[in-house]
Lab assay of single mutants.
Amino acid sequence: DTFTFTLDGIEVRLHGASEELIKTIEELLKRDIRWEELEKWIREWEK
């Protein structure tokens, strides 16, 4: 599955994202998160 969203005018596609990761990103997007914050968060998630 591919999860697609737009952040700061950039279309982002995550391939093979888990349901948990998708739900977490959706929550972060509701908080009007900035790209830099999401990028940092995703790097931490990957560890």
Rank of each mutant, 00 (worst) to 15 (best):
residue 1 D to V: 13
residue 1 D to M: 14
residue 1 D to P: 09
residue 1 D to Q: 13
residue 1 D to N: 13
residue 1 D to G: 14
residue 2 T to S: 07
residue 2 T to P: 12
residue 2 T to G: 07
residue 2 T to Y: 10
residue 3 F to D: 00
residue 3 F to T: 01
residue 3 F to P: 01
residue 3 F to V: 02
residue 3 F to I: 03
residue 3 F to C: 03
residue 3 F to S: 00
residue 3 F to R: 01
residue 4 T to P: 01
residue 4 T to E: 06
residue 4 T to R: 04
residue 4 T to Y: 09
residue 4 T to M: 09
residue 5 F to P: 01
residue 5 F to I: 05
residue 5 F to S: 00
residue 5 F to R: 01
residue 5 F to Y: 02
residue 5 F to W: 02
residue 5 F to M: 02
residue 5 F to G: 01
residue 5 F to D: 00
residue 6 T to R: 04
residue 6 T to I: 15
residue 6 T to D: 05
residue 6 T to P: 01
residue 6 T to Y: 13
residue 6 T to C: 14
residue 6 T to F: 15
residue 7 L to D: 01
residue 7 L to V: 15
residue 7 L to E: 01
residue 7 L to F: 13
residue 7 L to T: 02
residue 7 L to K: 03
residue 8 D to R: 01
residue 8 D to W: 05
residue 8 D to V: 02
residue 8 D to Q: 04
residue 8 D to E: 08
residue 8 D to L: 05
residue 8 D to T: 02
residue 9 G to C: 05
residue 9 G to F: 04
residue 9 G to A: 03
residue 9 G to M: 03
residue 10 I to Y: 10
residue 10 I to S: 02
residue 10 I to C: 13
residue 10 I to N: 06
residue 10 I to F: 10
residue 11 E to L: 06
residue 11 E to W: 04
residue 11 E to G: 01
residue 11 E to M: 05
residue 11 E to I: 09
residue 11 E to Q: 06
residue 11 E to D: 05
residue 11 E to T: 14
residue 11 E to K: 04
residue 12 V to Y: 15
residue 12 V to G: 01
residue 12 V to T: 02
residue 12 V to D: 00
residue 12 V to W: 06
residue 13 R to F: 13
residue 13 R to Q: 15
residue 13 R to H: 15
residue 13 R to S: 15
residue 14 L to E: 00
residue 14 L to P: 00
residue 15 H to T: 14
residue 15 H to Y: 15
residue 15 H to E: 14
residue 16 G to K: 06
residue 16 G to P: 10
residue 16 G to R: 05
residue 16 G to W: 08
residue 17 A to N: 02
residue 17 A to V: 13
residue 17 A to Q: 02
residue 17 A to H: 03
residue 18 S to A: 06
residue 18 S to M: 02
residue 18 S to C: 05
residue 18 S to Q: 05
residue 18 S to H: 05
residue 19 E to K: 14
residue 19 E to L: 15
residue 19 E to Y: 14
residue 19 E to R: 11
residue 19 E to W: 14
residue 19 E to P: 15
residue 20 E to M: 12
residue 20 E to T: 10
residue 20 E to G: 08
residue 20 E to S: 09
residue 20 E to Q: 11
residue 21 L to V: 12
residue 21 L to I: 12
residue 21 L to N: 04
residue 21 L to C: 06
residue 22 I to M: 06
residue 22 I to K: 08
residue 22 I to F: 03
residue 23 K to Q: 13
residue 23 K to V: 07
residue 23 K to W: 09
residue 23 K to P: 01
residue 24 T to N: 15
residue 24 T to E: 14
residue 24 T to W: 13
residue 25 I to S: 00
residue 25 I to W: 01
residue 26 E to S: 12
residue 26 E to L: 15
residue 26 E to F: 12
residue 26 E to A: 09
residue 27 E to Y: 14
residue 27 E to R: 11
residue 27 E to P: 02
residue 27 E to M: 15
residue 27 E to C: 13
residue 28 L to A: 10
residue 28 L to F: 11
residue 28 L to T: 03
residue 28 L to P: 00
residue 29 L to G: 01
residue 29 L to A: 02
residue 29 L to F: 04
residue 29 L to N: 01
residue 29 L to E: 00
residue 30 K to A: 12
residue 30 K to M: 10
residue 30 K to G: 05
residue 30 K to Y: 06
residue 31 R to N: 13
residue 31 R to W: 11
residue 31 R to I: 07
residue 31 R to A: 12
residue 31 R to K: 13
residue 31 R to T: 15
residue 31 R to E: 06
residue 31 R to Q: 12
residue 32 D to I: 07
residue 32 D to T: 08
residue 32 D to Y: 08
residue 32 D to V: 06
residue 32 D to R: 06
residue 33 I to V: 11
residue 34 R to A: 08
residue 34 R to C: 04
residue 34 R to W: 04
residue 34 R to M: 07
residue 34 R to L: 07
residue 35 W to D: 01
residue 35 W to V: 05
residue 35 W to H: 04
residue 35 W to I: 10
residue 36 E to R: 09
residue 36 E to T: 13
residue 36 E to M: 09
residue 37 E to K: 05
residue 37 E to C: 05
residue 37 E to Q: 12
residue 38 L to M: 14
residue 38 L to S: 00
residue 38 L to Y: 11
residue 38 L to R: 00
residue 39 E to F: 15
residue 39 E to H: 15
residue 39 E to K: 12
residue 39 E to W: 15
residue 39 E to L: 15
residue 40 K to P: 11
residue 40 K to E: 08
residue 40 K to M: 12
residue 40 K to C: 06
residue 40 K to I: 11
residue 40 K to H: 09
residue 40 K to Q: 11
residue 40 K to W: 09
residue 40 K to T: 12
residue 41 W to I: 12
residue 41 W to R: 07
residue 41 W to E: 05
residue 41 W to D: 02
residue 42 I to G: 01
residue 42 I to C: 05
residue 42 I to E: 00
residue 42 I to S: 01
residue 42 I to T: 02
residue 43 R to E: 05
residue 43 R to M: 10
residue 43 R to C: 08
residue 43 R to G: 07
residue 43 R to Y: 09
residue 44 E to G: 06
residue 44 E to T: 05
residue 44 E to N: 09
residue 44 E to A: 11
residue 44 E to W: 10
residue 44 E to L: 09
residue 45 W to Q: 08
residue 45 W to I: 06
residue 45 W to M: 06
residue 45 W to L: 05
residue 45 W to N: 05
residue 45 W to S: 03
residue 46 E to K: 07
residue 46 E to Y: 15
residue 47 K to V: 13
residue 47 K to C: 11
